[in-house]
């Protein structure tokens, strides 16, 4: 079965890495809950790490560990060291984000993005001394069916 059709492993790995980045970016773009955004950021970061390790890979090479035997071709160890650091930094970023979420929950009582946007805009308007904006509500208060189209006088 292996001889008839075998997928290219390197192409599969690149597809997996790019897929992780795309899924993470989609979660960041379309997420409606702040905790889901933290998870999506972790996904995108994992995909970037995989892409970096793939960049230093060679099929005819061994792991970059000196064993004392005859020297052989090694995989590039520099991206691996970078990714090692990036993984640890990623966990630090995630822990900081969770701590910030706890503070947001304490301050506003919700983590839903739409509710948070309304609350933050209300606070900004209160701090600046501006009342409720009329332009956003003007089409809804227009009488008659002409108001449904949203025409401005």
């Amino acid at each position: 079965m292996d001889m008839t059709f075998a997928p290219d492993p390197l192409a599969l790995l690149v597809i997996g890495a790019l897929g992780l980045i795309v899924v993470g970016a989609a979660g960041l773009a379309f997420g409606r809950h702040l905790f889901r955004l933290v998870l999506a950021l972790g996904l995108a970061e994992a995909g970037a790490n995989l892409l970096l390790v793939i960049a230093g890979y060679r099929w005819d090479a061994v792991a970059p560990i000196l064993t004392g035997s005859a020297p052989a071709a090694m995989v590039d160890p520099v991206p691996q060291a970078l990714v090692l650091t990036a993984i640890v930094i990623g966990v630090g970023v995630q822990a900081l984000a969770v701590a910030l979420l706890v503070r947001v929950k304490l301050a506003y009582g919700t983590l839903d993005l739409a509710e948070l946007k309304a609350l933050v805009e209300r606070d900004i308007r209160a701090a600046a001394g501006i009342g409720e904006p009329d332009s956003a509500q003007a089409p809804a208060t227009l009488p008659g069916p002409a108001g449904l189209i949203g025409e401005r006088p």
Binding site: L13, V38, L39, G42, A46, N49, V53, I54, Y57, A61, V62, A63, P64, I65, V75, Q80, V83, L84, I87, V88, G90, V91, Q94, A95, V98
Partner: peptide, 23 residues
């Protein structure tokens, strides 16, 4: 599989273990 055993160890311990616990 990509000949990066140190990265694999770190990802399994920190990425799957510590990160999941923190979250």
């Amino acid at each position: 599989l990509l000949a990066a055993p140190d990265v694999a160890l770190t990802e399994a311990a920190v990425g799957a273990g510590l990160s999941g616990a923190v979250l």
